[in-house]
Write a protein that binds this DNA or RNA. Sequence first.
DNA 1: CGGAGACCTTGATACAGATCAAAGCCTCGG
DNA 2: CCGAGGCTTTGATCTGTATCAAGGTCTCCG
Lengths: 247, 247
Amino acid sequence: MHFLRPLVGVIPGMQTNCLKQGETMFVNSNAHPGSKPKASGQLGELSRARVILSEFKYNKGTEIFGEAEPAEYIYQVADGAVRTHKLLSDGRRQIGAFHLAGDIFGLENGATHRFTAEAIVDTTVRLMKRCSLEHVAETNALVALDLLNMTTRNLRHAEDHMLLLGRKTSLERVAAFLLEMDPRLTAAGVMALPMSRRDIADYLGLTLETVSRALSHLHGMGILGFLGQTQRQIVLLDRMRLAELDL
Amino acid sequence: MHFLRPLVGVIPGMQTNCLKQGETMFVNSNAHPGSKPKASGQLGELSRARVILSEFKYNKGTEIFGEAEPAEYIYQVADGAVRTHKLLSDGRRQIGAFHLAGDIFGLENGATHRFTAEAIVDTTVRLMKRCSLEHVAETNALVALDLLNMTTRNLRHAEDHMLLLGRKTSLERVAAFLLEMDPRLTAAGVMALPMSRRDIADYLGLTLETVSRALSHLHGMGILGFLGQTQRQIVLLDRMRLAELDL
DNA sequence: CGGAGACCTTGATACAGATCAAAGCCTCGG
DNA sequence: CCGAGGCTTTGATCTGTATCAAGGTCTCCG
């Protein structure tokens, strides 16, 4: 599927020249007209200064961009889910974040990506060409502030995750994970996880067996339930006790 | 020592009103005339828009600011060393970063600090009042870009540290620590660590005993030597082999 | 509908690093 | 110079999580 990756100037019908700020092109930033409101507005001023070039679809498991590749685009998840990770030379993997509908990812200040991004399920993303973002930000303080706010959000998450990875037990990590995903994924009382146990493990610095045992343990405690046929549909039954487990 | 903390408007001789950008007051941003060149320039445009209010001295072990406190100032280490950390409710500690001469710390986009900062040794810092930094950044894109660049540096460090905390072995972590501190601390071939084994452990997500054993192991391998009387003066004897240990 | 493969759970065992313990060393004040 | 206290090392043991292993379940596709 490598030929599906967008490369500068090779995608048929892709608009390659950027609009200058001011001559804006309005783009509806919601996935569907009825989608969650949080998806809108995250781009802030950026959505007026930059133009969304196109939507692009990635099949489950395919790479969206690789670590150390030049950062040509900024991405927003329209539908689906994305994981970003770093690898050690022997294959150990650390997932830095999960990106769900509405989330921005792949934003870089420097020239290259610092993570590899992959689609967890079939995923549609919106692409924005960077068009020397630094240059636009030099003249438009509001654009620069938007970039700063997004970067700060990422930094805050990374700082909290350092505490989790450095000092929390396996049960605390899994509890924290569920509490993090709950508001982002739960619809109609059910949390439908798009990612595998291995993905969760690589996000939490554990093995997949330990994640599975922790979930079973929480199940046994009556804190969560599994829905129907699959182990990826979780119902949180006691958020209070779950929160007490995450110190 | 709590009374030593700077509070708005209570420090005798402290200049409380900010200069507007443009009416700049030049402040030498180097610690001493002969100090390392990297200390200068880190503030970028910010050094012209903001004014350095004063220097302030903290004794070894004292708190500079606390987590969740309002962020009134930005700090730069003039001399000494600072650690920033988060605590869990039961006292487990994760150090997010060490800040040495020239480093900026305590920069927040939001209203409050996300870490506690403490002086590791007797430390002199320069304080800059924020003076609603957001407001200045709204009008001056270059200031906003400086903030973005500093935040991006912090983010890159946090991302790399997540990989270390989530997936590296104790020996790899200690090797990475030495390689990180080497260019920042080594002078005349000797690395003089200001921080204790416990600080290093809380930075690397280990115990102080494990850090000590890893250092002894590296010593036994001939990769490093301890200088004279103290265990905090380290000489790196084989950076090549040390780098090979950090995957 | 049936079979292959991916994913998940559960159990047994191993091990890296934590914990507990004690002794050596350095620092600094008196 | 001496002694108390903090820091570091080193050893013995423990334990949380990894690893190894096996079986179960779901998905997808022919």
